[in-house]
């Protein structure tokens, strides 16, 4: 049983599938996270209430652990695959040119956009989850004033710029990652693969654009 599991996990095909599956599940997290954060546009009260509901729900620990496992699996498998792929060609080419009909900017920069996302993620958690704690009372309930924290944080042009750059990077990562996950999992058909590639770009634009709009909005909210 264990031998079968180990053998399965070490197969090249399955390693790709783990990358794809964890990537898609992380895409699901991005959708949820963006949907919640868009409450910033609705108002401080709604955004803070949303944050409060998340933080005070005991299931948050289960969700955080699950996300942690997904992220570590995605990252760990990426490191393993990159190392194996590096070993598969010990002598490099003197000259290597892309055909122009296969690889894209996104597909050839996956390790770099992925690394940038990792750095972003660590800073992002430190800046907000473990950032300064402001409190506010909405409807008689005392809660963390995350709205104030976010607006205050994005008064800095550097912070806004860094955030936008990181979102573009995640967007680029998604344009290849999203459709690629389906390919790895075995979904490929002339009828839906071209559509899947378009959806991949659309999804990347919505996610990156949606998130990037938040700090820009917060920047202009600062004067109030």
């Amino acid at each position: 049983m264990i031998a079968r599991f180990t053998r399965l996990m070490s197969a090249s095909v399955v390693k790709k599938q783990i990358m794809g599956l964890t990537g898609l599940l992380l895409c699901g997290f991005l959708v949820g996270h963006l949907a919640g954060n868009l409450l910033i546009f609705v108002g401080a009260e709604y955004f803070n209430a949303y944050g409060h509901a998340l933080i005070t729900n005991p299931l948050i620990y289960v969700a955080e652990a699950g996300l942690g496992v997904l992220f570590i699996a995605h990252l760990g498998m990426a490191v393993r695959l990159i190392m194996e792929n590096h070993k598969a060609r010990p002598v490099k080419y003197y000259l290597k040119q892309p055909t122009g009909r296969g690889s894209t900017f996104a597909s050839s920069t996956m390790p770099y956009t992925g690394t940038l996302t990792l750095i972003f993620l660590v800073l992002h958690i430190l800046q907000f989850k473990f950032g300064p704690v402001y409190t506010i009372v909405h409807g008689g309930v005392e809660m963390r004033d995350l709205y104030k924290l976010v607006v205050e944080f994005y008064q800095s042009e550097v912070a806004v710029l860094w955030y936008v750059v990181c979102m573009i990077s995640i967007g680029v990562h998604l344009t290849h990652g999203f459709w690629s996950a389906f390919q790895s999992l075995g979904f490929h058909h002339p009828s839906y693969t071209p559509l899947l590639r378009k959806i991949s770009v659309g999804f990347a634009v919505v996610i990156a654009g949606g998130f990037a709009s938040l700090p820009i909005y917060c920047y202009f909210q600062g004067g109030m």
């Binding site: 090249s12 695959l81 792929n85 055909t99 296969g102 050839s108």
Partner: peptide
């Protein structure tokens, strides 16, 4: 090595 779905092979 492992495939990263770049499709340079197909091209």
């Amino acid at each position: 090595g492992n495939c990263t779905n770049e499709a340079e092979c197909e091209a």
